[in-house]
Nucleic acid binder design. Structure first.
Lengths: 216, 216
DNA sequence: ACTTGTGAACTGCTTCACAGCT
DNA sequence: AGCTGTGAAGCAGTTCACAAGT
């Protein structure tokens, strides 16, 4: 859905799969297994092995025929492609249950995504601190802090009615990428990208398949 | 990624879009606008209008040429297709920050997805109640309660190490559909479906595009 | 012997463009 | 006049199958 990002060297599905390849690679690395074949990697991620080779071939040849791919270099290379080999500063807007849970989530931090600021419009919440130590600021401070803290990605976890407004605030503060959890389609300027996460779409998918998969 | 559900009448992207069409339709319905054109619906969802018509044509002709689609019947029809015209009982396993946030999320309830049981293995949490009134049970009670409460979908929000075990417990309790938030690939029997949600994949997408979109 | 890298075939989704209705 | 429904064309991503390399 509207992932039609303009001029990207890699096809969108490839980018997504690269992120998935990362997981088994990290496990292999930790386990001290030095080499992995496209076949093995494919099995771990539930895809075709030719697919894996095609994906990896997009950015050079670093497999060894007859052997496979060196786990450490492959992982490093993928991280370079995805720009996960550095830290990213994020902010979150909307500290309800979901927002708080995300801000506290260690999974993000582990991958270099750091929440460095939190915003809400609820006077009840402003000034309070999250368990992780982040202070909740009023949204008015957003433009200022985005610049000061070099925030590059914004995460929206407000109610849907406020999501578009918050997005515009983020854009005008200079943010070019948004991860949106509000179940609404955000309109964005040409140069900016929005990734939507909508759990109920996933549930609707499951519901459809449960109902249809086993009867015919 | 491994959404290769076997014998589905509708193509996977169509099912996902149908879920998205639902949102503007609900807004139109509330606003009392009786009819919508494929063009308008397409604009709201960021897709092509021919796409909308093709998607809707999959299950009969209920547009009116020269006029458009009747909002109320279209919405009702889509809900029937997606089996969202009834309630689904869910359970959640893993009541950390994310699990708790999801269990409390009103967005699910609004669409007919009801959390009717919550499980955790942490003795600290067992016996406590969630703010919404749900009691946290030990995972040992899962098989029993799944049957008693007619739970059809399981949601996993445990740490990744426990996710596969929990999934197997759910499967053997008779559950056929899982929404998995743990960043790990769950292996599932043929007859079951798993939908994975992994936020860091979304962030990696954004990071890649931020880095590559504006330089060339 | 084994596994990569890749042209070619294939599959499936999207978009076009227009005939068909109202 | 306007918008749907749809065959046909176009495009993109996937898989096959095998040559190339170790």
């Amino acid at each position: 859905m509207e992932k039609a990002y303009k001029s990207s060297k890699l096809p969108a599905p490839t980018i997504e799969r690269l992120a998935y390849y990362t997981r088994p690679l990290e496990i292999y690395l930790k386990a001290g297994i030095p080499v992995i074949s496209s076949e093995a990697l494919a099995r771990h991620c539930g895809v075709n092995s030719a697919q894996v080779r095609k994906d990896l071939a997009h950015f050079g040849e670093f497999g060894v025929r007859g052997v496979g791919y060196e786990v450490e270099t492959l992982l490093k290379e993928i991280k370079k492609i995805l720009s996960t080999d550095r830290e990213w500063n994020l902010c979150i807007v909307g500290l309800g249950n979901l927002g708080t849970a995300l801000a506290e989530n260690q999974n993000f931090a582990k991958r270099g995504y750091k929440f460095v600021a939190a915003f809400d419009s609820d006077p009840e919440k402003i000034g309070k601190y999250l368990p992780g130590g982040l202070k909740i600021h009023p949204v008015e401070k957003l433009p200022d802090l985005v610049e000061k803290l070099k925030i590059e990605i914004g995460v929206i976890t407000t109610p849907p009615q406020q999501a578009q407004g918050v997005a515009e605030l983020l854009f005008s503060a200079g943010i070019k990428a948004i991860l949106n959890f509000a179940p609404i389609q955000i309109r964005s300027p040409e140069c900016c990208i929005v990734e939507n996460v909508d759990f109920s779409v996933n549930l609707e998918n499951l519901a459809y398949h449960l109902e249809n998969l086993f009867e015919e």
